[in-house]
Nucleic acid binder design. Structure first.
Lengths: 208, 208
DNA sequence: CTAGAAAAATGAACCGGTTCAACTTTTTTC
DNA sequence: GAAAAAAGTTGAACCGGTTCATTTTTCTAG
């Protein structure tokens, strides 16, 4: 039996998170006060801190939901990639990029990234870093799959290539969210320009 | 004639910055209060804000000094690189890395990076981003020089390769400063593992 | 059903970054 | 050299994230 207490706890936590998602998107992370969230969720300020360690924690929770979803889809791509290193890599990367702004704004991404860099040891920071690690692992998995198929040179270490690609797509994503005016299309183009020659270089020499 | 006012202004700004460098290194960015800096510099809190826009601005100013120095040395390496793409790239990269902790702590780097991501439009953020851009440009310059010498395949775009390498060294540096326990040696090893195969791939096919 | 214990909610108080109206100092003008 | 203007300094007050002693709610034992 869940009990009244458990039930109310779950309901309150959900209400706070919903209030946060909505307000953060609407007004921007900085200008939303904890008091606003508390009011919208029908609880007191202190109660918000009972459910989340601090303001950043609430943001990370919303970011985590979005990343989990992207990881889910990415797994299918990594398991059954299309033929050709360039096509496969870009499919995975664009999956990440194209989902990134559905639930979250650029400002929310910036804040979450900043938090994870500034306070890497806190539960917030660690959680975001762990999500990053899993994204990177997915790129590595994809490359290993391609290598198993003979589409990438056998001598290359998938973990090294995966890290290289992930570092690149991640850094370009940071530039993307740093520039409020940059459209997704530009991000795609930039990464394509980098991944395309890279993919040719790591590909098993095919028919010229 | 510099005038009394100008002289005092310069002296005060310097005293505040010196107080900041010393305190930030000693106690960590977060636990240093503006009031502490003001006291140490012999001015009031309000005066600190006359010289620096906000706390982050003071940090960026100290970071900028360090990056300017590294850029200076890097220019020589980019202009006259040693033979071989791997050797040349690593020399430039290690120049960056080896200087990074002379004046600044990992915490200071983390905070500066977080600031530039979180508030890219502010003077702080822009200044840090601009420094990053110049570092990236230096990598591109180096690659162009090597290509001019015939040490890198002619078909590859130096700007694209430069961005790729810079993204990678920057991201690995972020991981380095995020992990308080990681020694410089580990950072060097990780980047070497990534740059070495990359350098071989972009190098003009030499004698096998 | 009730007393006591355990869990959770509350909001006033704290803390430090930031602002700004009043005050001082320096420079300029005559 | 005195008065007015310009530039700079000051610290008390503001603001919002965070804490914690107190109060309220829920659960459990008898």
């Amino acid at each position: 039996m869940p009990g009244l207490r458990e039930e109310q706890k779950a309901k309150r936590e959900k209400r706070i998170l919903q209030a946060a998602v909505s307000r953060f998107r609407e007004c921007g992370y900085d200008s939303v006060r904890i008091e606003d969230l508390a009011q919208l969720a029908g609880v007191s300020v202190g109660t918000v801190y009972n459910y989340y360690q601090n303001k950043g924690d609430i943001l990370i929770a919303t970011v985590a939901m979005e990343v989990e979803e992207v990881l889910q889809i990415g797994q299918n791509i990594a398991d059954q990639p299309p033929n050709g290193a360039e096509k496969a890599l870009l499919k995975l990367i664009f999956n990440y990029y194209d989902h990134s702004l559905i639930y979250l704004t650029k400002e929310m991404w910036r804040t979450a990234m900043a938090l994870s860099i500034e306070h890497p040891g806190t539960p917030n920071g660690r959680r975001y870093t762990e999500l990053d690690r899993r994204l990177g692992q997915q790129v590595t998995d994809l490359i290993a799959t391609l290598q198993g198929r003979g589409e990438i040179r056998a001598g290359l270490d998938p973990a090294v290539l995966g890290q290289l690609v992930f570092n690149n797509l991640n850094m370009e994503f940071i530039e993307f969210v740093k520039d409020e005016k940059m459209p997704l299309k530009t991000l795609r183009n930039r990464v394509t320009a980098q991944i395309a020659p890279f993919a040719r270089m790591i590909a098993e020499e095919g028919p010229e």
